[in-house]
């Protein structure tokens, strides 16, 4: 449910990430734009939230801020019981590795690596598992997205839909608390869009991960647990 600039949390599940009164300005001087005007949001485990709204309303900006890829100009972001609004780059990067998974409009797979190796990249950084275990986990995740048999193929030897499914699996590689998806189906045909969305939706629910989806696709947005509409930097009813 969302009212005004605040999206109120549903009861029951544990809060994973909270954004409170987030402000963001882009540009400088006379061309400065107040993109986010005190937005608050609570993401809870096992729930998929979508944000919809016209281009330039600030939804992707919010996603990048909550994903600790950008810095807020005002407000707070709480992740893993820590306030991350003013945290340094090292800490934010470390938390991204441990707690956040991303799926972008473009898959951003590393072309020089195989599908399994791409999945192992965040795992290698986390250093929680051994080499063999990482590979097993990567193949298992690829099996979940229906690509186990293509685990040793280079990223550029996969189709667009397959690449995006690998990107979904990669976002889940480190068992993050929250997955951010920015137009994850924006570059795919209808069939692949539906497949990727279903995959993301099913895996997040099965694994109890929170997910925030930014999309223009009203149909997909409507299939999320909650839909937030944004306009001019605020959530609107």
């Amino acid at each position: 449910m969302s009212v005004g600039s605040e999206a109120s949390p549903p009861a029951g599940s544990r809060s994973v990430l909270q954004g409170k009164g987030i402000h963001k300005y882009l540009g400088s001087g006379e061309r400065q734009v107040h993109v986010l005007r005190g937005v608050s949001l609570d993401l809870r485990e096992g729930r998929m939230v979508s944000i919809v709204g016209p281009s330039g309303c600030g939804k992707s900006t919010l996603l990048y801020l909550l994903g600790l890829l950008d810095r807020v100009d005002g407000g707070e972001i709480h992740l893993a019981d820590r306030e991350m609004g003013a945290a340094g780059d090292y800490q934010r990067t470390q938390l991204r590795n441990e707690h956040i998974g991303f799926v972008f409009q473009f898959h951003f797979l590393l072309a020089e690596f195989t599908a399994a190796e791409n999945l192992m990249l965040p795992m290698r950084k986390l250093a929680r598992w051994g080499e063999e275990e990482m590979h097993e986990r990567a193949v298992e995740l690829l099996r979940e997205v229906g690509l186990a048999e293509k685990s040793e193929r280079r990223a550029n030897q996969l189709s667009g839909g397959e690449q995006q499914r690998v990107a979904v699996a990669r976002a889940l590689a480190n068992e993050p608390s929250v997955v951010f998806a920015d137009e994850p189906t924006g570059n795919l045909d209808v069939k692949n869009s539906s497949m990727v969305f279903d995959l993301l939706n099913r895996l997040c629910h099965e694994r109890g991960q929170a997910a925030l989806l930014v999309t223009h696709n009203q149909n997909l947005a409507g299939r999320c647990d909650e839909v937030l509409t944004m306009q001019d930097g605020l959530f609107v009813g």
């Binding site: 994903g67 990067t93 991204r96 590795n97 991303f102 951003f108 590393l110 990249l121 965040p122 950084k125």
Partner: peptide, 16 residues
């Protein structure tokens, strides 16, 4: 640059 950005987004530090 895109690969660098994705590495950074998945937790690779500046020093990495």
């Amino acid at each position: 640059t895109k690969e660098i950005a994705i590495l950074r987004s998945m937790g690779y530090q500046q020093r990495d």
